[in-house]
Design a protein around this nucleic acid. Structure first.
Length: 502
RNA sequence: UCCCCGAUAGCUCAAUCGGUAGAGCGAGCGGCUGUUAACCGCUAGGUCGUAGGUUCGAACCCUACUCGGGGAGCCA
């Protein structure tokens, strides 16, 4: 191994040169006199070609029996090769085996989610998970870049927090030297204090919710970025939020093309994202949910999905017939895979079909005053190509710190941002109550101990100013941009209800 | 907390009406100089989630439980 050590991502700059690559065996195909080794090194994948040469038969045999995910150093000549992954390949002159792996559990074939999550520590090496990790990285980077370049100062807020604030059922309680304390579910109250010092601030860290939710958009531990701005109004906040989301979308489109392609993301829908986003008041949203438009939309969706199921069933019948008459084994395999996939799709569709009447009922029977449900959000976001800001929710459904609208006291100056394509809420934010008397009255009304909020009330005693902010969930944003169904794949080691291994 | 679905080989899934448990992948051995989830031949691999019940006979029917998936509520 005398040649220069490079990363696979740099291969295009080393055509015609002898180089060394250090990585892992992703997959291999062995012939009698030639082997194709797919090697990954973290920066990408490439194909190595090993030919059987006189005097090197032993190495050839040894490499032939290497298990998937064996670690190795290889040396070879870089050449262009359109048939190879990434467009380049390595004509190997030497292979140094660093570690021989036997029986790697995650094969290149399909696996169930339970199996894969129990092997999450290995699952991270898979192509799809690699792509998601890199998209997440870019999302995080874009978040930091946006705030850092718009005059915000980072303030880290505590993770141990007094068990006060919102609904205590949603908090993880723990014993803090004999005192009842909870893991933080927002840094917002502390951030409000910091905003009165620094003007524009943000915090970015893990946050914890003990909600007993088992859905594709919930984790018990997730990452949230929360900006807080002094001297702003609701319209100003919406403008910051849409510029912010736009900048994150652009960064992913620009820097993660390869990864989006691996995930088969339809980037055209992301390319359309552009301010101004849709603005819809809560009251307008309720009217929309009651409208014929929604009814027709759901009926159309129902019909469409039923037709899809019928089509898939026809395909299955057809494929089953073809399977019986086909002679080649690979044809049978291909057909049975198609059939299996179709069955899974049918199950998914069937479940959606079963849910639609329920969602229709929920939408049609929605009463002004409740918080929007998950299905309601999905419907609203599916009706728009741009993200939707739903603003001015009923006061009764929202947290004590939100500022009521001076023009309509029954609603507060808040907003949620719903991502398109049914991804739902990625941002929640509001203007904060900055009037001392009103805040104190609300704290008392909620039955909270005023004593616990003295410091928070101080912010309204001394130099109170209009301010507001919002929080964006990183995992939901990554799932939306990557176009994946479940947020558990957007974080390396997801924490869900009843899941803590590995 | 509630509703729906599921559990069969290491993995992904079949098994018609209740009648001898099957395939592919993976593993092992052999063959093949250009493969793209390579292919071809052979070999090994099972207490059908657990406990009970119905039956001449249960992977299949019934009951309970465990675990998993999805959804409602709640939420970013």
């Amino acid at each position: 191994m005398t040649a220069e050590c490079i990363k696979i991502s740099e291969m295009s700059r080393h055509v015609g040169q002898e180089v060394t690559i250090q990585g892992w065996l992703y997959n291999s195909r062995a012939g009698g006199k030639v082997q194709f080794l797919i090697i990954r090194d973290g920066s990408g994948m490439c194909q190595g070609i090993l030919e059987k040469k006189e005097g090197a038969e032993e190495l050839f045999q040894e490499v032939k029996h290497l298990g998937q995910e064996s670690s190795l150093r290889v040396q070879g000549m870089v050449r262009e090769e359109p048939r190879s992954v990434g467009g380049y390949e390595l004509a190997l002159s030497d292979v140094q085996i660093v570690h021989k792996t036997q029986d790697y559990p995650i094969t290149p074939k399909s696996h169930g989610i339970d199996f894969v999550m129990k092997n999450r520590h290995l699952h991270l090496r898979s192509r799809r998970q690699w792509a998601l990790a890199r998209i997440r990285h870019t999302v995080v980077e874009a978040i930091r870049n946006f705030f850092n370049s718009h005059g915000f100062t980072l303030v880290d807020t505590p993770i141990f927090a007094p068990a006060v604030g919102e609904d205590e059922q949603t908090l993880f309680n723990l014993d803090y030297f004999g005192e009842d304390v909870a893991l933080s579910q927002t840094g917002q109250l502390y951030l409000e204090a910091a905003a009165m010092s620094l003007g524009r601030v943000y915090c970015f860290g893990p946050t914890f919710r003990a909600e007993k939710s088992k859905t594709r958009r919930h984790l018990t531990e997730f990452w949230m970025v929360e900006p807080e701005i002094a001297y702003i109004d609701l319209d100003g906040l919406l403008e910051v939020a849409e510029q912010f989301v736009y900048s994150v979308v652009q960064a992913v489109l620009k820097d993660r093309q390869v990864e989006l392609e691996i995930l088969e993301r339809d980037v055209r829908v992301l390319q359309k994202i552009k301010p101004p986003f849709v603005r819809l008041s809560y009251t307008e949203a309720v009217e929309l949910l009651h409208s014929d438009k929604v009814k027709l939309f759901l009926e159309g969706q129902l019909q469409q999905k039923q037709e899809q199921v019928k089509q898939l069933e026809d395909h299955i019948t057809q494929w089953t017939g073809e399977q019986e008459v086909s002679k080649k084994q690979w044809q049978k395999d291909k057909l049975s895979q198609q059939i299996q996939q179709a069955r899974e799709d049918i199950n998914e569709l069937q479940e959606q079909i079963n849910n639609i009447p329920h969602h229709m009922e929920l939408a049609a029977g929605f009463r002004w005053g409740k918080d929007l449900g998950g299905s309601d959000e999905t419907i609203i976001s599916q009706l728009h190509e741009q993200p939707v800001f739903v603003h001015r929710y009923p006061k009764q459904a929202k947290a004590f710190y939100m500022k009521p609208d001076p023009l309509e006291d029954r609603v507060v100056l808040n907003f949620d941002c719903l991502a398109p394509e049914g991804y739902g809420e990625v941002i929640g934010g509001s203007m904060r109550q900055d009037d001392y008397d009103a805040l104190l009255a609300r704290i008392k009304k909620e039955g909270y101990e005023v004593e616990n909020y003295e410091w928070y009330l101080d912010l309204r005693r001394y130099g109170s100013a209009p301010h507001g902010g919002f929080g964006l969930g990183v995992e939901r944003t990554v799932a939306w941009l990557a176009g994946i169904k479940h947020i558990r794949e957007t974080i390396a080691f997801p924490r869900m209800m009843g899941k803590i291994y590995p």
